[in-house]
Nucleic acid binder design. Structure first.
Ligand SMILES: Nc1ncnc2c1ncn2[C@@H]1O[C@H](COP(=O)(O)OP(=O)(O)OP(=O)(O)O)[C@@H](O)[C@H]1O
Length: 642
DNA sequence: CGTTGGTAAATTTTT
DNA sequence: TTTACCAACG
C-alpha cells in the first residue's frame, strides 16, 4: 500500500482530536485515510490498544484491521477492532453484570431465532384456529426491523408489510413472547447485543468510564451502513473526549433492509456541529471508463449527495456488456474469459465474480469445477447453520450451560422415540435438577428410556473434556455418528463437514469462547469439501455484492444482470410505491458498489433465458439500460466464444 | 404419541 | 433445496 496522502486526505488524517467526518465516493481512499490517521495517532504517542476501529460487516472489519496491522508493523500492540456486534459481545461479557446480564449468556444465530419463532408461531395458530401468520423468516424480519429502527411493530407492519396489517396484533404478541423467551433463558440475539450495549453504557457509570478509559479514540468505517442503535453506540463511545472519526459514502448504503440509515452520515454534523467535514474526490482505484459507468449510476440516484468520481487514469478498457442465451452460457463465458485473463498474467486472486444472491453463482461453480479453477465463495451459504453442525454443537452447548433449553430440545428431538410432546414433557421435568440425574430418573420405557440413558451417559463422558474443546467436539461428533446416518441420507458429505469443523476449532482452549466465536464470527467453509489444503494458493473470489464492499480487484464480473435479479424483484410485492422506490434505490446503490470494485476491467453479464424470463420479457438491468450506450462495449457471448 | 411419507409453496442481501 | 402441513400407520 502506498504511504502517500493527497492534501484532502492529509487534512483528515492530521486532525487528531475531536470529531471528524469524511464523506467521499468509492475508491477515494476513505479506508486509506482512516488507517493513515491511525498511524499518525500512534506516532503522536497514543497507545494502539486505546484506539478502537469499528464497522458493520465482518469483511470490512477484517480488511480495516489487516490494513492497520500492516501499516503499524508487527512489533506494535495490535489495535482493537471488529464489528459493532463483536465489540458489544466482549464488553457485555466483561461488564454485563452491571445491568443484571449474566456473563455466560448464549448468543442466538439466525436459525436459532427461526426455531424459537416457529414454536411461537405454532402456539399462536393452535390457540386461534384458522389464523394465518407469515412465515417465520418474515416474522423474524419484522421483529428485527422494529428493534433496529427503534420503531413499534405497528409502524413497521404499516410501512412495509401492509399485507399483514390485519394481524398486526398477533405479530406484536409474537414479538413480546419472543423477548420473554430470550430473557427467561439467558439468550441474546444479534439485535440484543446492540440494545444491551447501549443500556450498559447509559446506565452503568463505571462500565462507561472503563470503556472510555480503554477506547480513547474511535474510528468507524462504512458509517452509511449503521442503524440508529449503532449511531447511538458511536456517540456514547465518543463520550466527552469526542475523539471520533466516521467515514462513509451515502451512495454505498446497502443495508437499509436491516435498518441501516445512510442519513446517519449527514446527521453526524448535527450531533457534532463542530465536526470537521472532509470530502475526497479523486479516485485511486479505477480507470476512467469504469468510473464513467459508476457516475452514470450515481446520477440515477434520487437522494444521493452527488459526487462525480474522477481519476488520473484516463486510459482504460471500456467495460463490456455481455449478452448470453442462458445461465449455462453465462457460466461458460465467465470461466473461459477468466482463463484468458490468467494467460495474460492476471492472477486469480485479482479477479472476482459478483452477484446479487448466492444461488446466481451455482451454474458458474459447476463450470469452474470443470475448468479446474480454484475459487472461494463469500456470502449466502451458512456452513455453521447447517442442521448437522447445529446438531453436534447443541451437545456442546448443553455441556457449557445445562439449562439451555433450546439445545436440550434439539438434542432430544433428534433421538429415537422422542417427538415434540415428549421433548416438552422432559424439558419441563428437568428444570432445577442436575441434567444427567434428571434424564436418568425421568420415567420412560422402551426406545425413550434407551435414548435418555444414552444421552445422559454421553453428557457425563464429555464433561471431563470441557477444558479441551476440540476433543470435546470430537467426542460429540463420534457420539452423533449413529444419529447422522439415520437422520440424513447424504451423511457422508455431512460427516466431512463435521471433520472440517473439528479442524477449524483446534486452537480453542475455552469452550464458551469457542461457542460464542462460532456464532458471532462463523468460519466460511464450503459445503462437503473437507478441510481446505493449507498451501496458500491463488483463488478466484465469488462473492455477493454485499460482501464485496470495501474490496477491490483488477477484473470484476457482475453476473446475472438481468432485470428482476438486479434489481431483485420479489414475486410477492405488495409494498407501498414509495417504499418500492426506496428499495429500488438501494438495489441501484448495490450495483454501484459492485462496479466500483473494478480497478481495470469490468464485465457486466446477463443471461436471456432464466427462471424469470418465462413471466416477463428478458432485459438487462434497468439500471444498465439507462447508462449512455457509448459507455459499454457490447457483445454476444455466443460470438465471443466462437 | 411418534414416525413416515406425501404434497404444495417459497426461494436476497448480514450481524 | 428446505419447510410447513396433513394423513396414515404402528
Ligand atoms: N493518496 C493515494 N495515493 C495512492 N493510492 C491511494 C491513495 N489513496 C487511496 N489509494 C488507493 O486507492 C484504493 C482505494 O482506497 P480505499 O479502499 O481506501 O478507498 P475507499 O474510499 O475506502 O473505497 P470504498 O468506498 O470502495 O470502500 C486503494 O488501493 C488505495 O491504496
Amino acid at each position: 500500500m502506498s504511504t502517500s496522502l493527497n492534501p484532502a486526505q492529509r487534512r483528515a488524517a492530521e486532525i487528531l482530536e475531536g470529531p471528524v467526518l469524511v464523506i467521499a465516493g468509492a475508491g477515494t481512499g476513505k479506508t486509506h485515510t482512516l488507517v493513515h490517521r491511525l498511524v499518525k495517532l500512534v506516532e503522536s504517542g497514543v497507545a494502539p490498544e486505546s484506539i478502537l476501529l469499528l464497522t458493520f460487516t465482518r469483511r470490512s472489519a477484517q480488511e480495516m484491521v489487516a490494513r492497520a496491522a500492516k501499516m503499524l508493523g508487527d512489533e506494535r500492540e495490535p489495535v482493537a477492532g471488529g464489528t459493532f456486534h463483536s465489540f458489544a459481545n466482549l464488553t457485555l461479557r466483561r461488564y454485563g453484570r452491571d445491568i443484571d446480564l449474566p456473563s455466560n449468556f448464549t448468543i442466538l444465530d439466525q436459525s436459532d431465532v427461526f426455531e424459537i419463532l416457529s414454536g411461537i408461531r405454532t402456539e399462536l395458530k393452535l390457540t386461534d384456529e384458522g389464523l394465518d401468520l407469515p412465515r417465520r423468516e418474515t416474522i423474524a424480519a419484522i421483529i428485527s426491523k422494529s428493534i433496529n429502527q427503534q420503531a413499534p411493530i405497528e409502524d413497521i407492519v404499516a410501512r412495509e408489510y401492509s399485507q399483514f396489517f390485519n394481524i398486526t396484533d398477533y405479530l406484536g404478541i409474537a414479538a413480546s413472547r419472543y423477548e420473554k423467551y430470550k430473557s427467561e433463558h439467558n439468550l441474546v440475539d444479534f439485535d440484543n447485543l446492540l440494545v444491551l450495549l447501549i443500556r450498559l453504557l447509559e446506565q452503568s457509570d463505571e462500565a462507561r468510564a472503563r470503556v472510555h478509559d480503554r477506547c480513547r479514540y474511535v474510528m468507524v468505517d462504512e458509517y452509511q451502513d449503521t442503524n440508529v442503535l449503532q449511531a447511538r453506540i458511536t456517540h456514547l463511545l465518543a463520550g466527552e473526549s469526542r475523539n471520533l472519526m466516521v467515514v462513509g459514502d451515502d451512495a454505498q448504503s446497502i443495508y437499509a433492509f436491516r435498518g441501516a440509515n445512510h442519513r446517519n452520515l449527514f446527521d453526524f454534523k448535527e450531533s457534532f456541529p463542530d465536526a470537521e467535514l472532509v470530502t475526497l474526490e479523486e479516485n485511486y482505484r479505477s480507470t476512467q471508463p469504469v468510473l464513467d459507468v459508476a457516475n452514470a449510476l450515481m446520477v440515477q440516484m434520487s437522494e444521493a449527495f452527488q459526487k462525480r468520481l474522477f481519476t488520473k487514469r484516463a486510459e482504460g478498457t471500456r467495460p463490456l456488456l455481455v449478452e448470453c442465451s442462458n445461465e449455462q452460457e453465462q457460466a461458460v463465458f465467465v470461466a473461459e474469459e477468466i482463463g484468458r485473463l490468467r494467460e495474460q498474467g492476471i492472477p486469480l486472486s485479482e479477479i472476482a465474480v459478483l452477484f446479487r444472491a448466492s444461488r446466481h453463482a451455482f451454474a458458474l461453480e459447476v463450470e469452474l469445477g470443470g475448468h479446474a479453477i480454484p475459487y472461494v465463495k463469500y456470502g449466502g451459504f451458512r456452513f455453521m447453520e447447517s442442521a448437522h453442525i447445529k446438531d453436534v454443537l447443541a451437545h456442546l452447548k448443553l455441556v457449557e450451560r445445562p439449562e439451555d433449553d433450546l439445545s436440550l430440545s434439539r438434542v432430544l428431538l433428534m433421538r429415537d422415540g422422542i417427538g415434540k410432546k415428549g421433548a416438552k414433557q422432559i424439558l419441563d421435568a428437568v428444570s432445577g435438577l442436575s441434567l444427567v440425574k434428571s434424564l436418568r430418573s425421568y420415567k420412560a420405557r422402551g426406545k425413550v428410556r434407551a435414548s435418555l440413558d444414552e444421552l445422559a451417559s454421553f453428557l457425563e463422558s464429555i464433561e471431563p473434556l470441557r477444558e479441551a474443546p476440540p476433543r470435546c467436539l470430537e467426542a460429540a461428533v463420534e457420539a452423533f455418528d449413529p444419529l447422522i446416518k439415520t437422520r440424513y441420507d447424504d451423511w457422508p458429505r455431512r460427516k466431512r463437514d463435521l471433520e472440517t469443523l473439528v479442524g477449524l476449532v483446534e486452537r480453542y482452549r475455552s469452550l464458551p469462547s469457542m461457542l460464542t466465536d462460532l456464532t458471532l464470527e462463523p468460519p466460511n467453509a464450503a459445503r462437503g469439501q473437507g478441510l481446505a489444503s493449507n498451501a496458500p494458493r491463488s483463488e478466484l473470489v465469488l462473492s455477493t455484492m454485499h460482501s464485496a464492499k470495501g474490496l477491490e480487484w483488477k477484473a470484476v464480473f457482475v453476473i446475472q444482470a438481468q432485470d428482476g435479479f438486479i434489481p431483485m424483484i420479489s414475486g410477492f410485492n405488495t409494498e407501498r410505491e414509495e417504499d418500492d422506490e426506496e428499495a429500488l434505490d438501494e438495489e441501484r446503490r448495490l450495483l454501484y458498489v459492485a462496479v466500483t470494485r473494478a480497478k481495470d476491467l469490468l464485465y457486466v453479464v446477463w443471461p436471456r433465458d432464466t427462471a424469470r424470463s418465462r413471466y416477463s420479457w428478458p432485459m438487462p438491468s434497468r439500471f444498465i439500460e439507462r447508462i449512455p450506450e457509448e459507455y459499454f462495449e457490447r457483445c454476444d457471448a455466443h460470438d465471443w466464444l466462437a
